[in-house]
Design a protein around this nucleic acid. Structure first.
Lengths: 112, 112
DNA sequence: TTCAAATATTAGCATATATGAATATTCCTG
DNA sequence: CAGGAATATTCATATATGCTAATATTTGAA
């Protein structure tokens, strides 16, 4: 079915979000464009590795670039990325809250 | 920073969506619970492989199970999953439309 | 045209992931 | 409690991914 192709493409796109480093980059680019150099200062990993991740984000069409001299600025192609990011993080935080609650309950039971 | 831990967990959660098969399963479970057997009929891959993917979804806390006799029913833990799914697919479809448009434009230029 | 700054790419290795085949577990029924 | 149906797990292997280190490319300016 055609549907299978969509699942395939969909999963390809989601691969972009499976790296903490790429998530950090995307979060930094959320509302402004940044040059590679600016990103490099904000982030804890090496320039080459940063470039590799930016390259992946480019290939997948998640970010776009603008050149000014030797400086290259990166920005998001689609602000929906931010929404997707937020929904995931909400789910994550809810889950963490649950886990917290769970471990509090367990402590309560143990004391009883 | 604490933030790094969140990116790590966030990326872990996103890994769940990097398999077309898991996306298909999640889409089937979107609004109803289904047993493994029912899923097996709706899907084109083997039972063992289906179980493997369900196991991954369970581990990550994306789906929950209910047992009735030997039958096990699966359902989504959080309906936000559906929203996340939709946002991704919207982005995907927009991109495909763009690409379509692009290739139409190219054909137009070639004809001119 | 040469140099340095900014960014990108490649190669090699280590780790993670997906799959099929085989096997195990759980639970109901007779 | 033996057998069968439903589901899960394990193992081996193939493929993909991420990282570092080294190197390349592009561009502006002297």
């Amino acid at each position: 079915m055609m549907e299978q192709k969509l699942y395939e493409l969909h999963s390809q796109m989601c691969r972009v979000f499976t790296s903490p480093k790429r998530l950090e980059i995307l979060n930094l680019l959320r509302d402004k464009e940044l040059s590679v150099g600016e990103l490099e200062k904000l982030v804890k990993f090496r320039q080459a590795n940063l470039s590799q991740h930016l390259s992946i984000l480019r290939e997948k069409g998640i970010v776009k670039t603008r050149r000014d001299g030797t400086t290259i600025y990166y920005s998001l192609v689609d602000t929906k990325i931010g929404k997707a990011f937020d929904i995931m993080r909400e789910m994550l935080l809810e889950r963490l809250a649950q886990t917290e609650k769970l471990s509090r309950d367990i402590r309560k039971i143990k004391r009883a």
